[in-house]
């Protein structure tokens, strides 16, 4: 299922707010480490991925966790996963 950038960004923000309700993901610099900036522990990070999985209907293998560290890498990763899901 192909999605545009706005949908992906929105999904990322909504999912982040679920685990860090007091945070404003939109104000996060694109290059900041998301987990450090929003104080997300490994349990909350898993919750974040589960939320993304539900919203975007994409699987995120554990081996790819390292590609999700900054907002910029997260968004491009999600972009590629969504496109991949569309072609596959």
């Amino acid at each position: 299922m192909s999605r545009n950038d706005d949908e992906i960004r929105e999904a990322a923000f909504v999912s982040l707010r679920r685990v860090a309700p007091e945070a404003d993901p939109a104000s996060l610099p694109l290059t900041a480490n998301i987990r450090e900036a929003l104080e997300i522990d490994s349990y909350d990070f898993l919750q974040f991925l589960i939320a993304l999985n539900k919203r975007l209907d994409i699987d995120i293998p554990e081996a790819d966790y390292g590609k999700l560290q900054t907002m910029s890498s997260l968004l491009s990763y999600l972009r590629s996963r969504c496109d991949g899901a569309a072609s596959g």
């Binding site: 490994s42 349990y43 898993l46 589960i50 999985n53 699987d59 995120i60 293998p61 554990e62």
Partner: peptide, 11 residues
């Protein structure tokens, strides 16, 4: 964890 869906993965 390889074959587990996200929600079933063990930390």
């Amino acid at each position: 964890n390889l074959n587990r869906p996200l929600a079933d993965r063990i930390l």
